[in-house]
Amino acid sequence: MPIQYYLFLSMALFCIGIAGTLMRRNAIIIFMCIELMLNAVNLLLVAFSKMWHDASAQIVVFFIMVVAAAEVAVGLAIIVLMYRKVHSVDINILNRLKH
């Protein structure tokens, strides 16, 4: 496949992820859209790794997954904590940054 196909695919997934982040009010769904964006990037990196015959891109993908996993763990813990306080995961209500 020419690299453009993978580029476009990855970009489409990335933009869908962004659209989702902006459109949804549920904090968990937003989190999932972020994961979607990360995966889009992973896909692109693997495609480039094949193009340039460089294994380090795949190593980077590996590390991205590592970081994503850690991030999900901590992020969900925070969301659970907020849910205990406010009993909702609506980001319009989670506006304590205002103060």
Binding site: M1, Q4, F8, M11, C15, I18, A19, G20, L22, M51
Partner: peptide, 27 residues
Amino acid sequence: AGAISGGILFLVLLSALVSATKTLPVM
């Protein structure tokens, strides 16, 4: 607004990469 923003981003990246990838090696 969210959907449109995503769409615009897609288009911008698209137009950028179309012209940029002409010289890349074929996989």
